[in-house]
Design a binder for these strands. Sequence first.
DNA 1: GCATATTTGTCCGTATGTATA
DNA 2: CTATACATACGGACAAATATG
Lengths: 236, 236
Amino acid sequence: MSGDPLGLAETVATRLREEITGGGLPPGTRLAEVRLTRDLGVSRNTLREAFRLLSRDGLLRHEPHRGMFVAAPSMAAIIDIYRVRRLIEIPAVTQAWPRHDAVARMRTAVDEATAARAAGDWRSVGSANMAFHAAIVALTDSPRLAAFYVRIAAELRLAFGLLDSAERLHAPYVEDNETIVRLLEQGDPAGAAARLTTYLDQSERVVLDAFARLADDQAPAVSPTGPALQRTGIFR
Amino acid sequence: MSGDPLGLAETVATRLREEITGGGLPPGTRLAEVRLTRDLGVSRNTLREAFRLLSRDGLLRHEPHRGMFVAAPSMAAIIDIYRVRRLIEIPAVTQAWPRHDAVARMRTAVDEATAARAAGDWRSVGSANMAFHAAIVALTDSPRLAAFYVRIAAELRLAFGLLDSAERLHAPYVEDNETIVRLLEQGDPAGAAARLTTYLDQSERVVLDAFARLADDQAPAVSPTGPALQRTGIFR
DNA sequence: GCATATTTGTCCGTATGTATA
DNA sequence: CTATACATACGGACAAATATG
């Protein structure tokens, strides 16, 4: 085509990433190479390069001689993700410096979430919530933790995508976030950490409940593990 | 060669991994594709697939239109790695269940380290030390933390490779490890965590000191950042 | 259980843009 | 500035593994 100033593979990867996180490609769907090469207008090698980038972010999963699949979080994965979030976010807030740059980012994220909620834009509320917790991790000034958290958050967002009205799910937590950042600004990291702890517990419960309900709906009576549903990864 | 039961790319990746961690490919060296395709007898596509696996482990670093380089830990990277280690390992030990499987693995790692030290096999002492701390992370029962730690440990091992007599470096810490696992077995996780904390502090200091000395030696007088040394990543 | 079709894994040759000497 | 070396991207091809009827 015309000009692609930065790698074509990354362009393809970005487009696929939006498609996945946007819900266009539900978790568990198989990404056939030949079909995507036609739809995206790139060669197979380039597409596979994009696959490498996406699997690095944890959005895709590779099965030998079977292909690439959109990662489908299991119940155990969600539990593990929240365990990791507690381990990282709570100490990050506890030992936070009140005038850290990331605190300002937390504040703007809360403001954006408030505005988006007032406008009924639930998707933006979810994005702002993600940004808020990413800023919490940024309090540690650790690039490795930040990169790790990006991967975790992407996986969790996939789980949200499985849920029906997912964005509405964390809309009520805007107040919690506001309280957390206010306590930090006022120099009370311990109080902020306590608030964060209860938030994580509640959020995990809500997500797990919705996930269990989803699993019940999709696996009604006779065959709890049909081949089609196995591929969604929910029952693995 | 003959039969390659599992992917050829993984076979190549394994061989390169051993070459890198073994010191055959020092940090900062550039991995030219065409040359490696000849030496390894594989095609470029397969080699790039292997590159993807290794960069996922943090052993390789990619620069656009310049190629793949063996990751060269910087001073800031080492500091960050130890910060992450504290964040993960200390809580892991603190909330450890004394009869956890991983405790047994810690014990065997200590025994192996003791035997290796008696035999003067410093390389095996280092490997056992790595296994010991991997077992500590396994106390959390979190597959994501374990995978993350693998990446961190690989990067740290690269830093050790830069150091001259690196294996000798953590030989004196066998006693610390023995104390930690004994306290855990005796049901004193708090004491074990305290001991682990001092170990991490001391280890970080030793590594950073050796690293600073290495940098001084390699950048003697006139040109602190020659093009060859820049590529080592030490001064970046 | 078997034969077929589809898809991935791997290799090759080539053209083009980019960085470095 | 030129020239070389290399990464990027393309398309085609065959073997091996998997899925399907």
